[in-house]
Nucleic acid binder design. Structure first.
Length: 865
RNA sequence: GGGCGCAUAGCUCAGCUGGCAGAGCGCUUCCCUUACAAGGAAGAUGUCGGGGGUUCGAGUCCCUCUGCGCCCACCA
């Protein structure tokens, strides 16, 4: 047991304790624990391909305090951590960091060395060329960089004092994750929950991959209505379009069935300008009479409404935009005459933007563009990480059914959402609205490289055609597999791509397809069913509000299918970090501070205090002021502990209040003074409040109640009994005070342990051998409060202090006579604390009389000289 | 267009089942006091966003308006 330092300090204590906790396995999960005693937490593994944001510190600290509470409250806490490293975010970081680009057509180069390591030469338009490298080379670099990034995260999380069991660490690209992800997918396939289809797909032309609904966002972008004339037998029909370049893909015109203006045209055909293609005029309820001219051109595909019309009205497909975002080089076969083919020739090979200009020129020249384009601002769909608008292309993709096209499944997932307990409760609305608004199944395949491969092969027919309808699956015992490197059962590697042979699925799964399985990955569902059964379904999923629709929902989907259960019983949703201007903090604004610098400046506990003092789910300003307050609290705890232990000695055997073992009964046997008993009764109430708050995941309220007591304890109670505790009035009264002080300080250390793990451990260590974080959460000892209103005593303290302050004398100045008048209750309180008050305020004569109200008459000794 | 949330001291926020408007920061004053000067003791500061209602009583419950934030929404 270390000696109490002469001058306690917070500086440097983190490294010492973090190392000790790991060495002693303080946070290690007990694999023999029974499910009933386990509290399991499914932390979303952070994406490591980016800098560490204060938002991460914020949310993870809040959850850590919940974990620490449950651990002290006697639960076997299962608290793993993982890294979300597979996916496009990592690929992009690798591209920038090494100056490379994955090109699967490149051969593997065993001696490849990237042009540089480090963030790309900065500055806009530096425009360095990325070197194309093979997929194996690229994946190797992904592994290299994520390993580095993960080490940085681990160092930060350890410094932050997150009480993970580091032996349970995982990464979403590791063998366990790939095996879990592939097995779950194969089960989905087997049960008909996963399917592949060739269909119009929302496509990012820069990353060249399909993206899912959850990854799409609307951005307001400038555009323009172009009024175009279509030609009918009875004259021109005018339509407004923001995408005139898609005229060549027009397959129909559509009006609302009730729109009388266009009723006569329905069923007829009109000719497109420039290209002269005959297209039918059809009706559909989605057409909006008040938008544009009330009749729209349907193209394959300008937007998702086009897809709906195309599907429901059984229209032909006339696509020209390729996966690279450019107009196809080949002239479309549906253009019959030479003029039309020539017109297309001016568009071939252009980007969408270039093609629009070229098309407008032709329309203007032909007179089919009526008037000038009218600029508007309208929402355009983007991939959330993308910089160019999404296009819609037809491609074959894998989907998992999520209720987007199936009311029964949708209802089942809505029911799951209702079964889940949300903190704060109103966050459930986000889930409900998302599920209710789904408009398609979950697209899980990605045309990318650093991910979990879709574990399937397809037969290649004798004619060389790929049979996508009869995928070949691996044996579960062989997972994880890479179908682009291994052959399916019954085939040899040289049959790859040959007639009569096979071909591997080239795609990887969406990162959510793996991270939706974090409960199964962390709990080793595939490899350790015994462990899995002890911790699943989990007790808690903490996370940010922005990933309810993605991470939370997809995890519910997978668990529902695989286990017919919710993945967790409760979810806590943290708030945003706002900068001092009340805007969401963001890197681009340059207002991001690095957590490590803050830890160094204020101490980890101070930063944690800031996070814990924020209400659950409430957006919170980044506040260094709040960290200063936390630092003051932590420092105060060290000092008051030093004071109390200096009085009572630090022997472990004196432990009171049930810190070790059950300790019932002996706790307050020595505290007999009414002032001490009243304090202990108040302490009991604080324990109850803090416990109740923690039970409902309200770490902030638990801290607030504890802190309020703590400052009152330090400012009033300790000052009040200090003289008595020193022995000024004999052994008996001193023993009562010392016992109460010791009991209170040990309770306070434990109440503050979830918030300030370092300062509490440091101060606890001066009188205990074991960790405070393994100590039992305090229980009320049942102190019966005497008829003594401590608030009255505090009021007298405060009023006399004020008199001294206003008289500009030291607080130690002697009060020659204090006369207090008060109601019987007030008089009783002051009488009971009479000697302590006289000590604390240096009062020579204290007179107490009955009166209608509390009133004080303070006589100070005349100033010397 | 739909939904959710927020609005309390100069600032950041508590105020949980309705009962005397609070804390911290900042500001002002005092105190080198034996746990604590990166400290301590004290002080000033309010149209609880506006309006209406329920109630003996509303910061708190209901309605409504305004402002801000976030999420969602078929890009003609």
């Amino acid at each position: 047991m270390p000696a109490i330092p002469e001058r306690p300090t917070l500086d440097g204590i983190e490294a010492r304790w973090a190392e000790r906790w790991e060495a002693d396995g303080v946070y290690r999960f007990d694999r023999t624990a029974q499910r009933g005693s386990v509290f399991s937490i499914d932390t979303p593994p952070p994406t490591v391909s980016g800098s560490i944001h204060m938002g991460t510190v914020f949310g993870y600290t809040q959850t850590d305090s919940l974990a620490r509470y449950r651990r002290m409250a006697g639960r076997d806490v299962f608290y793993p951590i993982g890294w979300d490293d597979n996916g496009l975010a990592t690929e992009r970081r690798v591209q920038n960091f090494y100056g490379v680009r994955c090109d699967p057509s490149q051969p593997f180069d065993a001696d490849f060395t990237p042009p540089f390591r480090g963030d790309a030469p900065s500055g806009k338009g530096s425009g360095h060329q990325e070197i194309p490298i093979s997929r194996p080379n690229f994946v190797t670099l992904c592994h290299e960089l994520t390993a580095t990034d993960e080490a940085v995260f681990e160092e930060l999380f350890r410094r932050l004092g997150l009480s993970f069991d580091w032996t349970l660490q995982y990464a979403t690209i590791d063998d366990v994750s790939r095996r879990t992800s592939q097995l779950a997918f194969l089960h989905n396939l087997q049960r008909g929950e996963a399917y592949s289809a060739e269909a119009p797909t929302v496509w990012d032309v820069d990353d060249r991959t399909a993206v899912a609904q959850a990854e799409i966002e609307d951005r307001e972008r400038p555009g323009a209505y172009h009024l175009l004339a279509f030609h009918g037998p009875d004259g021109d029909v005018l339509i407004d379009t923001t995408r005139p370049e898609l005229l060549v893909s027009c397959v129909a015109m559509v009006a609302h069935p009730d729109d009388e203006r266009y009723a006569p045209l329905a069923g007829s055909t009109v000719r497109t300008p420039i290209f002269g293609v005959e297209v039918p005029v059809v009706t559909h309820p989605l057409a909006q009479p008040d938008k544009g001219t009330g009749i729209a051109m349907v193209c394959t595909f300008g937007d998702t409404t086009d897809v709906t019309w195309w599907r429901e009205l059984d229209l032909p497909t006339r696509s020209v935009i390729g996966r690279d975002g450019r107009f196809a080089a080949a002239t479309p076969p549906w253009l019959a005459d030479d003029a039309a083919r020539a017109a297309y020739g001016a568009l071939a090979g252009l980007t969408v933007k270039q093609a629009q200009s070229a098309m407008v020129e032709q329309l203007r020249a032909s007179g089919d563009l009526r008037g000038d384009p009218r600029p508007i601002t309208h929402p355009v769909k983007f991939y959330e990480r993308g910089s160019r608008p999404l296009e819609i292309v037809t491609s074959r993709q894998w989907y998992i059914r999520n209720g987007g096209r199936d009311q029964d499944r949708r209802d089942a997932f809505l029911t799951r959402g209702k079964e889940l307990d949300w903190f704060p409760d109103h966050m459930r609305h986000r889930y409900d609205h998302w599920v209710e608004g789904l408009n398609g199944d979950w697209l899980v395949s990605r045309q990318r490289f650093f991910g979990v491969p879709i574990p399937l092969w397809y037969p290649v027919g004798d004619d060389g055609a790929i049979d996508h309808d009869h995928p070949m699956v691996p044996d579960a015992s062989t997972l994880p597999i890479d179908p682009s490197a291994e052959a399916p059962p019954g085939y040899t590697p040289d049959q790859r791509g040959r007639p009569g042979g096979f071909i591997g699925d080239p795609d990887v799964m969406d990162t959510w397809a793996t991270s939706s399985l974090t409960p199964q990955i962390a709990a080793r569902w595939v490899d350790e069913p015994n462990l899995f059964a002890r911790v699943f379904p989990m007790d808690l999923r903490p996370q940010g509000p922005e990933i309810i629709r993605t991470w939370l929902f997809s995890t519910v989907v997978r668990s529902h299918y695989e286990h017919d259960a919710l993945p967790w019983a409760n979810t806590t949703i943290n708030g945003w970090i706002l900068d001092p201007d009340r805007k969401k903090m963001s890197k681009s604004k340059g207002n991001v501070v690095t957590p490590m610098a803050l830890f160094d400046q204020y101490g980890t506990d101070a930063v944690r205090y800031w996070a814990i003092s924020a209400r659950p789910g409430v957006d919170t300003a980044f506040s260094e002021d709040q960290m200063k307050v936390g630092r003051r609290l932590a420092t105060k705890l060290l000092n008051v502990t030093k004071f109390v232990l200096g009085l009572v000695g630090g022997a472990d055997g004196d432990t009171v209040g049930g810190a070790d073992g059950d300790g019932q009964g002996e706790a307050d046997s020595d505290a007999v003074d009414p002032v001490d008993l009243a304090m202990l009764a108040r302490l009991d109430a604080t324990i109850t409040e803090a416990t109740t708050a923690f039970e409902s995941f309200d770490y902030a309220r638990a801290l607030e109640r504890t802190e309020a007591f703590f400052w009152w304890f330090c400012d009033d109670y300790v000052e009040l009994v200090k003289g008595r505790a020193y022995g000024g009035r004999g052994h008996g009264p001193a023993a009562s005070a010392r016992h109460a002080l010791r009991q209170a300080i040990e309770v306070l250390q434990r109440l503050l342990a979830p918030t300030l793990p370092y300062a509490t451990e440091e101060s606890w260590s001066w009188s205990h051998d074991g960790s405070v974080h393994a100590a039992r959460w305090p229980q009320p000892v049942g102190t019966v409060a005497p008829a003594l209103d401590l608030d009255v005593v505090s009021e007298v303290l405060g009023r006399v202090r004020r008199v001294k302050t206003e008289a500009k004398v030291s607080q130690r100045a002697t009060v020659t006579r204090l006369a207090v008048q008060g109601t019987p209750t007030q008089v009783a309180a002051i009488d009971a604390a009479r000697a302590d008050l006289a000590d604390a305020l240096t009062i020579s004569t204290l007179v107490v009389v009955d009166g209608p109200d509390l009133a004080l008459d303070v006589e100070l000794s005349p100033p010397a000289g």
